[in-house]
Design a protein around this nucleic acid. Structure first.
Lengths: 326, 326
DNA sequence: CCACTTTGTTAATGCGTATTACCAACGTGA
DNA sequence: TCACGTTGGTAATACGCATTAACAAAGTGG
């Protein structure tokens, strides 16, 4: 239409004004006129092909991203992720097509689409160390939401500082006169569990009080065991289990917190029915999501910075932790 | 790695088994092994450029996909969308990078990335008719979640049958002896509003009773007006407004539903604090999301079928609709 | 033993853009 | 006049894949 080359159009479109490539104002105007007349828009696909990146950030979860029946544990993370992605002009690619094997999705599988994105955010309480190791080995840009142990190298993550948050709750209990307290939960497996238990154990040792660790199971049995051991405050790894155990306490006519204190070490990861306002702390999920995108972005761009961040949890006063019963 | 050409890899990758192009099973296996070992994935951008398809479904919302402070109105849609996308092996691309102009995102803008996806799902109570018209004109595959008026042509959608659901509630009220009922809300603007009002008006006319329509505003004024007109049942366009108005009724010591009945025409689109279990209906959001993907998929594949679907809403008995006060 | 088919693989090409190297034409100073 | 910038622009190429025509090797029938 204008008799100029494709190159010239490209230069005009991208408003380049290097010294290296110059276009006469008059020519530029001619091209712009033609663009206006035809409503021409550069094909974004071809553009991406040429530029070698697509400004997609992948989001991978072992469970569905939008869990159907559940109390939206992931949601706040996604809010933060979306906000930050928007601020840096990236789109989010949800890997919904990952096939399910043995009840959960796999990162690596035949037809793995991970590299569709410039980088990837991993969500989930537990991540397969082998898959993490492989991601590291292959140099795939990624970041985990939640602290991860090394997997053949340091894993980039943005996590919650469970040890500090848990320890703070223990100190609070000690101030209120508790001398025999319990940690109820796995305490192993996922890093979020080991971190809580570690914070608990260290704080208990430092305070010189007695801490017991038992796994959750039949509420009746668990409560029997706890009462046998003279425990006055119960630290729950899982909020929902805490609700169950507190109900069991009330069934026995034990007052919460007059007779027995409860501390919930984080937000519910599954729906929990309870009237109690649990004492404990809040995981900064939205902020974690936001910062995860920041870290990932830094990795992709090759700009350095801390690739492992622990964010403080916000204490929640609640009503389930009181002075220890004499 | 395997000593074969790029062509061979492409053929194996796409599982082509034309008579025209054959690969020996042994060679195929060698290539597959290498693919598994390296986790290689074809670049979707290049793929798209060459074959014009990438198995991405775009999701566009005028508001953030993951609204921060709000009662998750979009969430159930997304659950359905994700489930169906997973079932047909597509990934979801969230257009979080769409720039905000005049307080909302725009579909079309310079650097518009819509064409990155094979097709696009549009979410939101209101969609700009001009943008819809342009999508139609350009032949962009898309589907709207929620019914839309024609915009220079029929718009593909999967919506909720508000007229039928609203009319059913009106009939229910008539059965209970109500003869003067009100529709409170905009009744215009978004299709979801006009549809509700239309269902209301038609049902009222057919039943031969009196229906009044007033906009929501200061609760005190609205309630004054409604009581002046002798209204005994109030149909609320917005759930949250209904909660506010019901609170105003109770403030005046009017019993709900003994003295005044309320019907909520759908689920809350914003957080609503209330103890009442509102009578009304439930929008089949998850199913709408699912079917939207089905429709979009059919459009992309060129297989025909109904491009406009209205799904029935599920009635909710609730406790706020009772026999009209004498 | 030759023409002819079948099998397995690849070189070449196109998709629409960004980028780079290079090239005319046109001064400019000595 | 000659060597040397400067200006304005373009041809060529890369990007990573899908597709197609072509081709070598092996088999087959007469």
């Amino acid at each position: 239409m204008t008799g100029v080359s494709q190159t010239t159009v490209s230069i005009v479109l991208n408003e380049r004004d290097d010294a290296a490539v110059r276009i006469a104002p008059e020519t530029r105007e001619r091209v712009l006129a033609a663009i206006r007349r035809t409503g021409y828009v550069a094909d974004p696909i071809a553009r991406r092909l040429a530029e070698q990146r697509n400004r997609f950030l992948g989001v991978f979860t072992y469970e569905p991203v939008f869990p159907a029946g559940l109390g939206d544990f992931y949601h706040p993370f996604l809010v933060g992720i979306e906000e930050c992605a928007e601020s840096i002009g990236c789109d989010l690619l949800l890997f919904t097509s990952a096939p399910v094997v043995d009840g959960r999705r796999r990162i690596f599988h035949s037809g793995n689409r991970l590299r569709l994105a410039d980088g990837c955010i991993l969500l989930g309480r537990w991540l397969d160390p082998e898959e993490l190791a492989r991601l590291l080995a292959e140099g795939q840009p990624f970041v985990s939401v939640g602290r991860r142990d090394d997997a053949g190298g340091p894993v980039p993550y943005v996590g919650a500082d469970y040890p500090a948050a848990t320890a703070a709750q223990v100190r609070r209990a000690v101030e209120l006169g508790h001398t025999r307290i319990a940690y109820v939960g796995e305490g192993s497996g996922a890093e979020s569990h080991t971190d809580r238990l570690r914070g608990f154990t260290e704080a208990v040792d430092r305070a010189g009080i007695t801490g017991v660790h038992i796994r959750f199971g039949e509420p009746v049995d668990v409560m029997d065991s706890l009462l046998d051991q003279g425990v006055t405050a119960i630290f729950m790894e899982e909020f929902a289990d805490g609700a169950i155990l507190a109900a069991e306490a009330q069934r026995r006519l034990l007052g919460v917190p007059q007779d027995l204190s409860f501390v919930a070490l984080g937000d519910p990861t599954r729906p929990a029915g309870t009237d109690l306002e649990f004492t404990g702390f809040r995981i900064p999920r939205r902020e974690m999501g936001w910062q995860a995108v920041e870290v990932l972005s830094a990795i992709i761009d090759g700009t350095g910075g801390t690739m492992q961040r622990l964010l403080p949890c916000q204490p929640v006063a609640g009503t389930t932790l009181a002075v220890a019963r004499a």
